[in-house]
Design a protein around this nucleic acid. Structure first.
Lengths: 263, 263
DNA sequence: GTTACAGGGG
DNA sequence: CCCCTGTAAC
């Protein structure tokens, strides 16, 4: 059975609903993780997504952040609150177990600037996501940590590594922290499958023509345990949505797993 | 020569530009009077309209009101300021002489409520428009007073005259004032041509499904001298724009004149 | 640039 | 309901 999981930072789910629905109708992921829904649960466009055959799990707040997980199959488990005050402080973390696989959807704090308290919050948040995973799972479990991780792991993952070195999203402390967490047993799926590909997932609105000039960052990831990596049939960035009118500044990452294959 | 004049309260020319351009491309009026452009002259989308072959005359202010006149032919005369402080106080009055015809474009104050000072301002504004016309022209001149006049002249011009009697836009003082001004020699062109037609030009956003249920008002007019009325080939409300997505709350009124016919 | 919000206005 | 003006955040 081929099983498709995707992540998409929509930058406002209400403002982007028509393009989100169109994209879902193209790709029909079994599981779709959304970030930056930017609305309270009461005004989340739940119905429109349910009409496409999804169960809709939302964790929103007013104006900022907000994550959601859409699943074609009913999850076996749902984690709305981790119990960790840092992870639960804003609407940035939502985990489900579906079809036997744990899917952890995060919207990692952007960090503002390396000298801002928000940067330490980002490092702490990453650290606590790592701890949360490592305390509950083993690297042999079927697990995907996905979402807007807001860290470009390597020089190849930003449009100008020399110029951007040290900026939020490409700061050595973030990269080290991410690497440290992944050393436990998480594979950067896109990079594993496409070792040399410049595949960005984010292009800043504020940089003129950033998408046309491909001045992007790879900030959205599929970080998976080896058993999931072995089952992966493909992993790709779909740049389609970013090229359309009034796009999100991010574009989706999609992974397809063959869940009938041997581990 | 058939000569088409139109009026359209666009409710924000920048927010409505694509639909405005589409409508112009359908109707190609020789003269188009706009109201509620809601922007300063520096940010008025002049180029897009010039690209359609129009000379663009704007009188805007920040955020509110704002009138413009687009002409295919260069006007012989332009009146940007009347010299009357009441008429010039906000961006509500713009007059041009084009193809020998005087076209006076007004966005008459809405009036807020009959007990609000804005209501007296509305009555005074109407009065001064009348005075301005009568001091400069004779009923034998070629003249059109058009725009969002914000008065429904008769019971047939509102969706529920009993319920709306006395409300702004259908208050006896406004109707009397408009009638008094028109008695000088102005013809309500749409009513002259279609004596029984319920032809609304405005449907309130705030009233649920007002357009679908046709709960409208006729507030936008073509008030013309007899020589122009004699030359009129047709006059109609184009409800098309109001039915499209993200419409203005008003829809255009169009008049076609045969300027080669005898008076 | 683009979203969200609040407040004024119709 | 929809526009505009601001502000804040990314």
């Amino acid at each position: 059975m081929l099983w498709k999981v995707a992540t998409f930072n929509v930058n406002g789910v209400r403002a982007r609903l028509d393009r989100l629905l169109a994209w879902i109708s193209e790709q029909h992921p079994h599981v779709l993780c959304l970030q930056e829904t930017k609305c309270q649960d009461a005004v989340f466009p739940r119905q429109a997504l349910e009409a496409l055959g999804y169960e809709v799990l939302v964790k929103g707040e007013k104006s900022f952040n907000g994550v959601a997980v859409l699943t074609q199959e009913t999850p076996e488990s749902v984690v709305m609150e981790t119990g960790d005050p840092l992870l639960d402080r804003e609407a940035r973390f939502l985990a489900v177990q579906v079809q036997g696989v744990w899917v952890i959807n995060t919207y990692v704090p952007q960090g503002r600037s390396p000298d801002d308290p928000a940067f330490q919050y980002k490092l702490d948040f990453l650290n606590q996501v790592g701890r949360w995973i490592q305390e509950r799972f083993s690297p042999q479990d079927l697990l995907i940590w996905t979402g807007d991780i807001n860290v470009a792991p390597e020089a190849i993952d930003v449009y100008d590594p020399k110029r951007l070195e040290g900026e939020v999203g490409f700061h050595p402390e973030e990269r080290a922290k991410l690497k440290e967490i992944m050393a436990w047993g998480l594979v950067d799926l896109l990079r594993r499958l496409h070792p040399q590909a410049k595949q960005f997932t984010f292009w800043d609105y504020r940089l003129p023509k950033s998408f046309d000039r491909n001045l992007g960052w790879r900030l959205d990831h599929m970080l998976v345990t080896e058993p999931m990596a072995h089952r992966c049939a493909e992993c790709f960035v779909d740049t389609g949505p970013r090229g359309q009118s009034k796009p999100s500044d991010h574009t989706p990452v999609v992974a397809v797993f063959d869940m009938s294959s041997l581990s």
